[in-house]
Simulated scan of single mutants.
Amino acid sequence: MGCKILVIDDEFEIVEFIKAILKTKGHTVLGAYDGEEGWEILLRERPDLAIVDLRMPKVSGLEFCRRVRRTPEIATMPLLVISSLGAVSDKPESFWAAGLRADDFLSKPFEPLALLGRVEYLLRRTSYLSQNNRKEEFEKSRAAEIPVHQPPPEWKEDPAEVVRLFVESWNRGDFLSEFETLADEMIGGISRDEYINRRMRVFQAAASNRHEQHVLDLFVKVSHMMAAVDCLREDITGGTRVAKHERYLLRKTSDGWKIVSVRSKPISKADA
Rank of each mutant, 00 (worst) to 15 (best):
S268D: 06
K135Q: 13
T71G: 00
M226E: 14
C231Q: 06
S94Y: 10
I41E: 13
S191G: 13
A183Q: 01
R233S: 15
K140E: 11
Q204R: 11
S223W: 08
E45C: 11
R124H: 03
I190F: 02
T181I: 14
P92S: 11
E40M: 06
H211L: 14
F105K: 12
D235F: 01
A20M: 08
N133G: 01
A102V: 15
L100T: 04
G31Y: 07
F17L: 14
M200S: 06
K19L: 01
D174A: 10
P112S: 07
K244R: 06
S127D: 03
S268I: 08
I14A: 07
R134A: 09
L80D: 00
T240F: 02
G2H: 06
V260K: 03
E234N: 02
Y248R: 00
T237R: 06
R192S: 06
K4Y: 04
K269A: 09
E36P: 00
K25H: 04
E93F: 14
E111A: 08
S83K: 12
R46T: 05
K221R: 12
V202G: 00
D158R: 06
N171P: 12
Q150H: 13
E137P: 00
S60K: 07
G31A: 11
L85C: 10
E40P: 00
A102P: 09
S83A: 12
R70M: 11
R55I: 15
A270T: 15
G26I: 03
F219H: 09
V262M: 14
Q204V: 14
E136M: 12
S127Q: 08
G117Q: 09
R233D: 01
E13Q: 04
R164T: 06
V88L: 09
E63L: 08
N132P: 00
V7S: 01
M225Y: 05
G188M: 09
L129W: 04
T126F: 09
L79I: 15
R70G: 02
T71E: 10
S254K: 11
K135L: 14
E36D: 07
R118G: 01
V7A: 05
D9V: 12
A243V: 12
P112W: 11
F110C: 02
W155C: 05
F175H: 03
E168I: 10
K108G: 05
R164D: 00
E157P: 00
R201N: 12
V81S: 05
L85K: 10
H224D: 15
L30R: 04
T253I: 07
R67I: 08
G256W: 12
L42V: 10
E40N: 03
R251W: 08
R55G: 00
L116D: 03
E111W: 07
W39E: 04
R172C: 03
A50E: 07
D174V: 04
